[in-house]
C-alpha cells in the first residue's frame, strides 16, 4: 500500500502542481525555469558548508581517530550488552551517510542479516538520518553559520534512536 503510494506520489506532484498553475492561468513554464534557476544558486551556496564538514569528517575517519572513539565507548556498550560490531555503526550514523551505509552492509554480510546484530544494524541504519549532513546542507542553503543548540538536539536524538533501537530489538527479536 505504502509502496504504491510512494510510487504514485511523485508523478502526481509533477503533473498536479503545473495543472493547478494552468487552471489558475499562470505562466507555468516561465515560473518553473525561474524557480529552477534558484536551485542552481542554492546548490552553489551549500557547497562550502558541505565541503568543510565532509573534509573534517573524512580526516577524523581516515586517521584512526574514529576507531579510537569507538574503542573508548566499548566498555559502556559492553556493560549494556550491545553487540560490539554495532557501536561504530551507531557513531558513524551521525557523521556520514555513505560511511554508515557501507558499515551496515558489512555487518549484514559478516554477521548475517537475520542475526540479532544484523537486525539491530538494519533498524539503526533505517531509523535516523545523518545529523552532520542535514545540518550542513540545511543551514548552508540559507547561510547560517551559528547553529546554537541544533547540533545538541540532533546528536541527543541520535543517541535516543540508538538506545530505543536496541531495546526494541531486544524485545522483538531476542527470544
Amino acid at each position: 500500500m505504502l509502496r504504491q503510494l510512494s510510487l504514485f506520489m511523485v508523478p502526481l506532484l509533477l503533473v498536479g502542481i503545473p495543472l493547478y498553475g494552468v487552471l489558475k492561468k499562470q505562466p507555468v513554464y516561465e515560473l518553473f525555469v525561474e524557480g529552477a534557476a534558484e536551485g542552481v544558486q542554492m546548490a552553489l551556496q551549500i557547497l562550502p558548508y558541505l565541503l568543510a564538514m565532509l573534509v573534517a569528517i573524512s580526516v577524523f575517519r581516515a586517521s584512526g581517530a574514529f576507531q579510537a572513539l569507538a574503542g573508548l565507548l566499548t566498555p559502556l556498550t559492553d556493560a549494556l550488552g550491545i553487540p560490539a560490531a554495532v557501536l561504530p555503526l551507531a557513531l558513524m550514523r551521525s557523521f556520514s551517510g555513505s560511511g554508515a551505509l557501507a558499515m551496515a552492509a558489512d555487518i549484514l554480510q559478516q554477521e548475517g542479516p537475520d542475526s540479532f546484530t544484523g537486525l539491530l544494524a538494519s533498524v539503526l541504519q533505517g531509523s535516523t538520518d545523518t545529523t552532520f549532513y542535514i545540518l550542513a546542507v540545511y543551514f548552508g542553503a540559507v547561510g547560517i553559520k551559528k547553529y546554537r543548540y541544533a547540533l545538541t538536539v540532533g546528536l541527543a536524538a541520535d543517541a535516543a534512536s540508538f538506545l530505543s533501537s536496541f531495546i526494541i530489538c531486544l524485545l522483538l527479536f531476542s527470544g
Binding site: 506532484l13 509533477l14 502542481i17 503545473p18 493547478y20 498553475g21 487552471l23 489558475k24 499562470q26 507555468v28 515560473l31 518553473f32 525555469v33 525561474e34 524557480g35 529552477a36 534557476a37 534558484e38 536551485g39 542552481v40 542554492m42 546548490a43 552553489l44 551549500i46 557547497l47 558541505l50 565532509l54 546542507v137
Partner: peptide
Amino acid sequence: LILEICGLLCLWMGMLRIAERS
C-alpha cells in the same frame, strides 16, 4: 555530491515556484 543534489533541487524548486505563484 552537490552536482547530484543540484539537478533535483532545480526540478523541485521549479515546481515549488509554480505552486507558490498559483
